[in-house]
Computed example of a mutant assay.
Amino acid sequence: MRNELDSKLLLRVFDKIRQSGEKRDDKYFLNGITAFTDLDGYTLFIEDSKVKLQYGFHNQYHYDYESNDDYEKFEKKLKEIDSGY
């Protein structure tokens, strides 16, 4: 299944997690979501315990999850962070 990604939402959420989240090592944590980058900063990773999202150069992205329910809960968390911070 291919999911459509709103890249502007993703970048806003990533920034809000970095601004408002708790930093541990090179990762940021907020409302059950973890956000971090690779060493060069070109690839973003946003994940929770069941869904992993990798977003990279030229708007390429990849989701890793087992159930559509997990994906929907993850997307809801991202939207809550976007609207709440």
Results as ranks from 00 to 15, higher is better:
residue 13 V to E: 01
residue 16 K to E: 11
residue 16 K to P: 03
residue 16 K to L: 14
residue 17 I to P: 02
residue 17 I to M: 07
residue 17 I to L: 08
residue 17 I to N: 02
residue 17 I to V: 15
residue 18 R to S: 08
residue 18 R to C: 10
residue 19 Q to H: 11
residue 21 G to W: 00
residue 21 G to N: 04
residue 22 E to Q: 15
residue 22 E to F: 12
residue 22 E to P: 02
residue 23 K to L: 12
residue 23 K to N: 14
residue 24 R to H: 07
residue 24 R to P: 00
residue 24 R to C: 02
residue 25 D to H: 08
residue 25 D to N: 11
residue 26 D to C: 06
residue 26 D to M: 09
residue 26 D to W: 08
residue 26 D to I: 08
residue 27 K to I: 00
residue 27 K to W: 01
residue 27 K to C: 05
residue 28 Y to N: 00
residue 29 F to L: 13
residue 29 F to G: 04
residue 29 F to R: 05
residue 30 L to W: 05
residue 30 L to G: 01
residue 30 L to Q: 04
residue 30 L to M: 10
residue 30 L to I: 07
residue 31 N to L: 08
residue 31 N to Y: 06
residue 31 N to F: 05
residue 32 G to M: 06
residue 32 G to T: 06
residue 33 I to K: 04
residue 33 I to N: 01
residue 33 I to S: 01
residue 33 I to A: 02
residue 34 T to N: 05
residue 34 T to S: 10
residue 35 A to F: 07
residue 35 A to H: 06
residue 36 F to I: 03
residue 36 F to Y: 15
residue 36 F to K: 12
residue 37 T to D: 03
residue 38 D to W: 10
residue 39 L to C: 09
residue 40 D to R: 10
residue 40 D to I: 11
residue 40 D to Q: 11
residue 40 D to N: 14
residue 40 D to P: 03
residue 41 G to L: 09
residue 41 G to H: 09
residue 41 G to D: 10
residue 42 Y to L: 14
residue 42 Y to R: 13
residue 43 T to N: 13
residue 44 L to Q: 05
residue 45 F to L: 00
residue 45 F to S: 00
